[in-house]
Amino acid sequence: MSDTEIAIVLGTRPEIIKLAPVIRACESQDVQYTVIHTGQHYSEELDAVFFEQLELPEPDYNLGVGSNSHGVQTAEMLVGIEEILQDEEPETVLVQGDTNSVLAGAIATSKLDMELGHVEAGLRSFDRDMPEEINRVVTDHAADYLFAPTVDSADLIREEGIPEDRIYVTGNTVVDAVEQHREFAQEKSAILDELELVPSEFVLVTAHRAENVDDEDRFEEILDGIARVADRFDVDAVYPIHPRAENRLDEFDISVPDSIRLVEPQDYLDFLNLESNARLILTDSGGVQEEACILGVPCVTMRDNTERPETIDVGANTLAGAETDEIVDSAIEMDGAVCDWTNPFGDGEAGEQIITEVEQSETPKELEMTPQ
Rank of each mutant, 00 (worst) to 15 (best):
V93T: 05
A142C: 12
S189G: 04
T38Q: 02
R124M: 03
D140S: 12
I36Q: 02
P59H: 05
V235L: 08
D236R: 14
D267S: 12
A190V: 09
P57D: 14
R232P: 04
P371M: 02
N62W: 11
R218C: 12
I81W: 00
M130N: 04
I107H: 06
E349K: 10
P59V: 02
T318M: 13
I84V: 13
V72T: 09
Y268E: 00
H141V: 07
R13W: 09
V328H: 01
L282R: 05
I281T: 02
N212R: 13
A177S: 11
R218G: 07
D267N: 14
K111H: 14
A177T: 05
E159F: 14
Q96N: 09
N247K: 15
A104K: 02
L56C: 12
L249M: 13
N273H: 15
A331Y: 03
D193Y: 13
E264N: 08
L156A: 03
N100I: 08
E115T: 00
S125M: 08
A210L: 12
V203R: 02
Y42D: 01
T206K: 06
R248H: 07
A143D: 02
A292N: 03
D236Y: 13
M334C: 09
D193A: 13
C293K: 03
R244K: 14
E362R: 11
P364S: 08
G11M: 08
H181F: 14
Q96D: 04
D176K: 05
R232S: 13
S153D: 04
S259H: 08
E220K: 14
V79W: 08
I260T: 04
Q53L: 12
S125K: 00
Y33V: 01
E132F: 12
G80K: 04
E310G: 05
G336A: 09
P257H: 11
I81P: 01
D140Q: 13
E15F: 05
G161Q: 10
V9F: 05
S276W: 07
I162Y: 09
F233K: 04
I23S: 03
E362L: 11
E349M: 11
V49P: 01
A25L: 12
Y239Q: 03
N305E: 07
S101R: 02
F184Q: 08
P344T: 10
P309M: 12
K365N: 08
D140V: 11
Q86M: 15
Q266G: 00
V229E: 03
E120C: 07
H208C: 05
N305W: 07
A350W: 05
E362D: 08
L78N: 05
L223P: 01
V198G: 03
G64H: 10
I354H: 00
E132I: 08
K18F: 03
G286A: 10
G122A: 14
P149H: 08
D347W: 12
L19Q: 00
E220C: 11
G315R: 07
I134K: 06
E352I: 06
V328Q: 01
F126C: 04
D47M: 15
Q53F: 10
I226G: 00
D127H: 08
D140G: 07
I8Y: 05
L156M: 09
D113A: 13
E159P: 01
T324K: 10
I332Q: 07
G105C: 06
V198N: 10
R232H: 15
T206R: 03
A230S: 06
E216Q: 15
F147K: 03
I134Y: 07
T34A: 13
E359M: 15
G286L: 08
P257T: 05
